[in-house]
């Protein structure tokens, strides 16, 4: 299932990476502690978090996650969006809490 399907079906905002929505999503990971995410998230994961600083983009780059999904209405600053564009990182957003988003991502992944 591609990022585009999640964006369309879950009504996600796209802050950066509009051109990279054909990336395949293969799993999900929730977390706000960056080293924890780096050590545990798998490539292709949808990373759901409330972190939205520049280091979030760096961790997304290093860990090869499919996208960063910012929960709870968190919005990245212009500097973060700019860095994400430079680094081909997809930044998504939603007003829903992490738990609801994880459940929705999990359900969609199950649909294959």
């Amino acid at each position: 299932m591609k990022l585009r399907d999640f964006v369309n079906d879950m009504g996600l905002r796209v802050f950066a990476g509009e051109d990279n929505l054909d990336t395949e999503v293969t799993g999900g990971y929730c977390g706000d502690l960056l080293s924890w995410v780096m050590g545990r998230a798998k490539p292709g994961d949808m990373w759901i978090t409330i972190m939205s600083n520049l280091n979030t983009v760096a961790v997304a780059v290093m860990s090869d996650v499919a996208a960063v999904l910012m929960a709870e209405g968190v919005e990245p600053g212009d500097d973060v969006i700019q860095r994400a564009r430079e680094r081909d990182v997809v930044l998504l957003g939603s007003d829903e809490p992490i738990y609801e988003l994880a459940a929705a991502v999990s359900k969609k992944l199950g649909e294959g």
Partner: peptide, 16 residues
């Protein structure tokens, strides 16, 4: 508060 200090830095370096 920036999301660091999880105490996973050196363990991750060794692990990877």
């Amino acid at each position: 508060n920036m999301g660091f200090g999880a105490g996973m830095g050196l363990p991750n370096m060794k692990k990877y």
